[in-house]
Design a protein around this nucleic acid. Structure first.
Lengths: 144, 144
DNA sequence: GTAACTGCAAAATATTTGCATCCTT
DNA sequence: AAGGATGCAAATATTTTGCAGTTAC
């Protein structure tokens, strides 16, 4: 079985659209995000690229993607650093991540439930909400 | 002005109740949590104790408190590690942290809104929720 | 007195920075 | 060709571990 090439043009488009030069590491790492239906940790990326790229390059690539709003971090209960693709409407420097993240206690995957609307929450007097993040843990549909 | 001693007996009780011996570092660090109306980072604790305790002791103290369910970590958007007091019903190894954390974008404080009920969220078919965390950022009542 | 806790040293891990070289445009 | 990206080395920062001395009970 050959490498999945279905994302090739999309990868190219995303990078160019964000004024990032198209390099091997960026293509490969972005491909990983497009393939993964979940979030990736720095370590995952190193492993899945076969450690083909320098650790520093991975850091810098993730940083570049963050700055361009291509990916975002997901806060997790155990404070591991996870990254996931942003929705298209994440513009540079201004994320719209008001969605639900689901952490599966069985397979360990963390996925973005983009389609789930974060419910309104009633805060005590004086608190003015700007952004809401929600992390739900449990059993995902794959492991169900 | 002298040190606030109003928490002295409470501190003693919490430590003994959790079978932790009552030592200077534990008393002081627990006091910080009781005084703070928000969450603390490792660095905050070092500073607020005047670096009186070894960095390692702080790590081990926090770890002990975590294991006993006295404190819990709060996931934050920037993946900083924050700790906050648990409610009384956090029993050892089994946290009930289904509450809302509020991060103030102005003063930077993170506080637990224990009294706010996390609203139900409707997940896609096949997803079984177990625990829900919610992090709301905005302007807190102090900065309002 | 004994078990548990602390501080120091050091190891292991994670992240950032500088710079020469290589690649994309 | 020029600017940006990469890889390597090394500096920093963070967290963990081992052990001897000290403290709580």
């Amino acid at each position: 079985m050959s490498t999945n090439r279905s994302h090739d043009s999309e990868i190219d488009h995303i990078l160019k659209h964000n004024q990032l030069s198209v390099t091997d590491s960026r293509k490969k790492i972005l491909e990983l995000f497009l393939q993964a239906n979940g979030a990736l940790a720095h370590g995952d990326i190193e492993k899945k690229t076969g450690e083909k790229f320098d650790r520093v390059t991975v850091y810098r690539t993730l940083q570049a993607f963050m700055e361009k709003g291509i990916i975002h971090t997901i806060p997790t209960a155990d404070n591991a650093v996870l990254y996931a693709l942003c929705k298209d409407d994440c513009t540079e420097g201004h994320h719209h991540d008001n969605h639900v993240h689901f952490v599966c206690n069985h397979c360990g995957n963390t996925i973005c439930l983009e389609e789930v609307v974060v419910p309104e929450v009633k805060l005590p007097k004086g608190f003015q909400p700007a952004e809401v993040q929600m992390i739900v843990s449990g059993i995902c549909s794959e492991c169900h």
